[in-house]
Design a protein around this nucleic acid. Structure first.
Lengths: 342, 342
DNA sequence: TTGAAAGCGATACCAC
DNA sequence: GTGGTATCGCTTTCAA
C-alpha cells in the first residue's frame, strides 16, 4: 500500500502538501501539478482508517433490511444506493434476522455514519434504543403504526387500503378477507394502518366484519405465509369473494393455493396485493396492488440521513417525516363479483 | 465515545491491561474481573478505525451483486451473511451497475478485507485487474464460461441445460427455443456454458438448430427482457413448442407475454427456467427450472474468502474451485408436446 | 504558500 | 503478569 509519506518523498514535498493537494488546500499551481502527477502514478489512495480515525467519518451507511429476498427491499436499496454513490457513500447491509440474534449489538457505530432501518419490526425495541444511545443518525422506512420514532419516510397505507376496499366494493364484493402480518405479542395494542384502513373502509361501506375474516401471519410477508394463510382463511370463512393482503408475496402465495384448489383468480375470488414489486405486473394473473414508489422511498431515506449527518445531529431533535404518495394499480387479479348461480 | 484510556483510568490499570482483557492476554483473574466490569459498565467498544489502522483488518467483506432486485442474489447473500456473522464479519454491498460507472474505482480496498463477486459480467475486465493489483482476496460466483480467474464456486450449467433439453425431448419436443443473456461485444468468443450445453444436447438428440431459435438479451436477466425476448423469438421462429431460458425471471416474463397472446403454458408451449428462485415454486404455473442451491453457494463463497484471509494470501496462487451440484426440478410449466390437429 | 508537530485510539513489543 | 512506548496513516493547527 502506498502512503502519503511515500508520495511526499517521491514528489519532493512535505506530507502536508500532499494532503492539501488531495483536499483542495492552498498549493501553488506548479507544485499541485507535480504532486498530482505523482499521486496518479503511484495510484495513491488515502487510508480510510487513518482518515476515519481523525475525522470520525466513515462514508458508509448501514442498511438494515428484513428478508433481503423480498424484491421490494432490493428496489428500495437501489434507491438508497443511487443517492449514496452520488455523495461518495457506500452501503453496508444487515438483515434484521441476524441483527436480532447478534451477540454484539451495537456493531453499527464506529463503522457507519448512519443507519437506515427498513420496516423496523421486532428489532424496534432494543435496536432503536441502542442507536439512540450511540447518537447514531437514523432514518426509517415506516409502514407501520402511525408515528415513527425518527426522521422517516412513510406511506399512508391506511389510505391505500381504503382504496383497495373501495375498488373491491365497486366491483360488487362484500365479503372481503384480509391476510396480513401481525406481531402476536402486540396484537391488540398495534395501530396497524393497513388493518385500520381496511376496517374503517369496510365500515364506511356498511360492511360488517367478523374476526374470522382476518388471517394474521407470523412472518412479515412471504409466499409461504400467503399460501398457508389463505388455506386457513377460506377454511374458517368460506364465503369470501375477495381478499386483501398486506404485501405482494402474500398475495402470490395465496393465489397459488387458490389455483391449486380449483379456485380461480379473479373469476372466483379477487385478490389485491400491496407493494407492486416488479414481478406483479407480469404475474399470472397480473396483480392488482397498492403501488409504493420504492426507488423514491430509497432516495428520500438516503437524503434524510445525509442531512442528518451534515447537520451533525442525530434524530433526537425534531423529526422530519416524508410521506410518499401511493396508489392502487388495477390489473387482472380483481374482477366483478360473480353472481352465484349455484 | 468511551476510549480504552478512560477504561484504564477508571479501572486503575494501564491501557495495555485493558487491551489484554479485551483480546484474551495474560491477566490475573482478579484484575481481569475488575476491568471486565468497568468495560461492561462503561459500555466500551474498541474503535474500529484505530483497530483497523493497526491490524489492517476490517472484518468487512464487500459483495458485488448485479441487480439486487433479482431474488436469486438475495438468497445467495443470505448464505454469505450466515457464515459471515458466525465469524464476526459484516457485509458491504455494491451493485455492479454503480461499480461500473464509479469514478473512484478501487473503493473496496481499505474498507474491506475481501470481496465476493457475484456473476461478474461486464465488470470483469478492469475490476478483476484492480482487485488483483490491490492484492485483494477475492472469490467469485461463476456461472459463466468455464474457467474462473479466482477461487470460486460455480455450477455446471452445461449439465443443467442438458438435463433441461433432455427433459423436453422426452416430452416429445423437437423445436426448442433458447432465450438468454449474451454480451453482444463478445458474442462469438464467449464460451457460455448454458448455450454450449443447450447446443450440445440438441445435437446429441439429432436435433438441428437454426440461429433463429436463439434469442439473446442485452441484460442479464429480467422480466422485461423475457417479455420482449419471446416476442421476438416466436416472431422469427413460430414453430416452437418449448423454450429454455437462462433464468427464472426471463421465463416469467416470457410466460406472461405468451399468456397475453393466447399461447398457454404448458399446453401450447413448455417453458423451463434456471435458478429456482423462491417464487418459482408458487408461480402460475409453477416453473420447471434448474435449481441452484443458493444458500449453499453463499456459504461456500464466504468460506472461501475466509480461508483466503486466514492464510493471508490473495487469489493469485492456485485457485480453489467448488462446484455445487444442480438439478432440474420438474413442475408444471412443461408438458408433453401437444399433437397438432390443425 | 509550505513544513513541522500534535494527536486520533488502538496494537505489539519491550522491559520490569 | 503488568506497564511504557513506538507506530499505524492521516488531519489539523500553528509557525515560518
Amino acid at each position: 500500500m502506498v502512503t502519503r509519506k511515500e508520495v511526499a518523498l517521491q514528489a519532493g514535498v512535505s506530507e502536508s502538501t500532499v494532503t492539501r493537494v488531495m483536499n483542495g488546500g492552498y498549493v501553488s499551481p506548479s507544485v499541485r501539478e507535480k504532486v498530482a502527477k505523482v499521486i496518479e502514478e503511484m495510484n495513491y489512495r488515502p487510508n480510510l482508517f487513518a482518515q476515519g480515525l481523525r475525522t470520525k467519518r466513515t462514508y458508509q451507511i448501514a442498511c438494515i433490511v428484513p428478508s433481503i429476498d423480498n424484491p421490494f427491499y432490493g428496489e428500495v436499496m437501489q434507491g438508497i444506493e443511487e443517492v449514496a454513490i452520488e455523495h461518495g457513500y457506500v452501503l453496508s447491509m444487515y438483515s434484521s434476522r441476524v441483527v436480532n440474534k447478534s451477540p454484539g449489538r451495537s456493531f453499527f457505530s464506529g463503522r457507519n455514519d448512519a443507519v437506515i432501518l427498513l420496516s423496523p419490526g421486532e428489532s424496534r425495541g432494543w435496536l432503536l434504543r441502542d442507536l439512540w444511545e450511540a447518537h447514531m443518525p437514523l432514518a426509517t422506512f415506516w409502514d407501520w403504526e402511525t408515528e415513527a420514532p425518527s426522521p422517516s419516510v412513510s406511506v399512508d397505507l391506511r389510505i391505500g387500503m381504503q382504496a383497495a376496499v373501495e375498488h373491491l366494493v365497486s366491483l360488487g364484493h362484500r365479503d372481503i378477507g384480509y391476510i396480513g402480518y401481525m406481531n402476536p405479542a402486540r396484537a391488540e395494542t398495534d395501530r396497524n394502518p393497513r388493518l385500520t384502513g381496511f376496517k374503517e373502509s369496510m365500515a364506511a361501506h356498511g360492511l360488517r366484519t367478523h374476526p374470522d375474516q382476518f388471517q394474521y401471519t407470523a412472518d412479515r410477508g412471504s409466499l409461504d405465509a400467503g399460501y398457508h394463510g389463505v388455506e386457513e382463511l377460506v377454511g374458517k370463512f368460506p364465503g369470501l369473494s375477495a381478499i386483501v393482503t398486506s404485501n405482494d408475496l402474500l398475495a402470490f402465495g395465496a393465489i397459488r393455493w387458490l389455483e391449486e384448489h380449483g379456485i380461480h383468480v379473479p373469476e372466483d375470488i379477487s385478490v389485491v396485493g400491496c407493494d407492486d414489486i416488479a414481478y406483479s405486473a407480469l404475474s399470472n394473473p397480473p396483480l392488482t396492488t397498492i403501488a409504493i414508489p420504492k426507488r423514491e422511498v430509497g432516495n428520500h431515506l438516503m437524503n434524510l440521513v445525509l442531512s442528518l449527518i451534515e447537520s451533525r445531529k442525530s434524530h433526537h431533535d425534531g423529526s422530519e417525516h416524508i410521506q410518499v404518495p401511493i396508489e392502487l394499480v388495477v390489473r387482472s387479479s380483481t374482477a366483478v363479483k360473480r353472481t352465484n348461480t349455484e
